[in-house]
């Protein structure tokens, strides 16, 4: 069996205590919530924290509050969100994204915070230590070369979160807590430029809350491309949010994911769409524009060329659904 390395295990009672432990332990400590991302990585010896700081007893980070805005505790399980009927009605795109993650069993364990902080993925990286030895390791872990782009100076591991593109499109904010205090950032600000430094969250910070502002009249959609109906991470994902003024686009957010190390906000496409009617021609043009921002490489399932092609199809379908 694949076995975990050893570690010290701590289970604080609240966010403040968690932050305190993280400060005390330094960079050798890691937070674990559902464990569905971290434990496989530890078994494959990607990460071997000396101390695991578990959120299992941290109840102040659970729950969903719905006023105008929706506030979700980072430690809320994916299954909890999936079973939240009001969330399904109010934020169907987010619900769709949550419901599409891996499998029902895994969603019983995984948390929204874990999905937001999901380690970037690459099939040169998500392999056992022995396998990685065969390629002399890679830039992201224990090695120097990014094998999917050997001349690259940065890591191309893929942000494969389902909820992140939707949260960005919806203008969500993340609250991070450390012993240095609390800060709230725009969702997109959470994500770094490459597959190694993929989070701007500091090692001593705990993601505590996700706040999604009142969506008003805007409607959103999430579309995910993958091989199978369960288990699989996205190989291309599109989140779109549109606010219409009559039959014209008043505001639009279009975010791609799983096509590079960082979620892609399609700014020029958004500009292009503003004030336009979503005719089939406009949607087609927008889809082409948006696909330019996608830079899939050969490090996930499916061929990268095909993924690039379906990005535009999926953008078209996403906007079509919001028409």
């Amino acid at each position: 069996m694949m076995r975990l390395p050893s570690f010290r295990y701590l289970a604080p009672k609240d966010a403040a205590e968690t932050a305190k432990i993280l400060t005390g332990e330094g960079p050798d400590a890691m937070i674990v919530a559902g464990g569905t991302d971290l434990y496989p990585n530890m078994k494959r010896r990607h990460q071997m924290p000396k101390t695991l700081v578990s959120l299992r007893n941290v109840n102040d980070l659970r729950g969903v509050e719905m006023n105008g805005a929706v506030t979700i505790g980072s430690n809320e399980t994916l299954r909890g969100l999936e079973r939240n009927a009001e969330l399904k009605t109010r934020l169907p795109a987010l619900w769709t994204a949550v419901q599409s993650i891996s499998t029902p069993i895994l969603r019983n364990m995984g948390t929204i915070g874990g999905n937001v902080c999901l380690d970037t993925r690459c099939n040169y990286y998500n392999q056992n230590w022995e396998w990685r030895r065969g390629i002399d390791f890679c830039m992201k872990c224990d090695g120097t070369v990014c094998w999917v782009a050997p001349s690259s100076s940065v890591c191309w591991a893929v942000n494969s979160s389902d909820t992140v593109p939707v949260l960005i499109a919806m203008g969500a904010k993340f609250t991070l807590v450390s012993t240095r205090g609390e800060r709230t950032i725009e969702a997109i600000e959470m994500f770094g430029e490459d597959g190694i430094d993929y989070l701007t969250k500091q090692k001593d910070e705990v993601l505590t809350r996700i706040e999604i502002p009142d969506q008003g009249n805007a409607t959103s959609v999430y579309r995910k491309v993958r091989r199978r109906g369960a288990f699989d991470f996205p190989v291309a994902a599109v989140a779109a949010r549109v606010e219409m003024d009559g039959d014209e686009v008043k505001d639009v957010n279009l975010v791609l994911n799983a096509v590079g190390p960082k979620p892609v906000v399609c700014e020029s496409t958004q500009e292009f769409l503003k004030g336009k009617k979503l005719t089939p021609e406009v949607v087609e043009e927008a889809a082409k524009l948006a696909a330019r921002g996608a830079k899939p490489l050969d490090n996930t399932d499916h061929l990268s060329m095909w993924r690039k092609k379906v990005v535009s199809v999926e953008v078209k379908r996403a906007l079509g659904a919001l028409r």
Binding site: N126, W131, I135, R228, G229
Partner: peptide, 21 residues
Amino acid sequence: NRFGVHKIPSMLEYKSPTTYE
């Protein structure tokens, strides 16, 4: 082109159909 490693020696990336397929 990468020393002959198996591309996907895992249950996740070797695609066995789920109930959905």
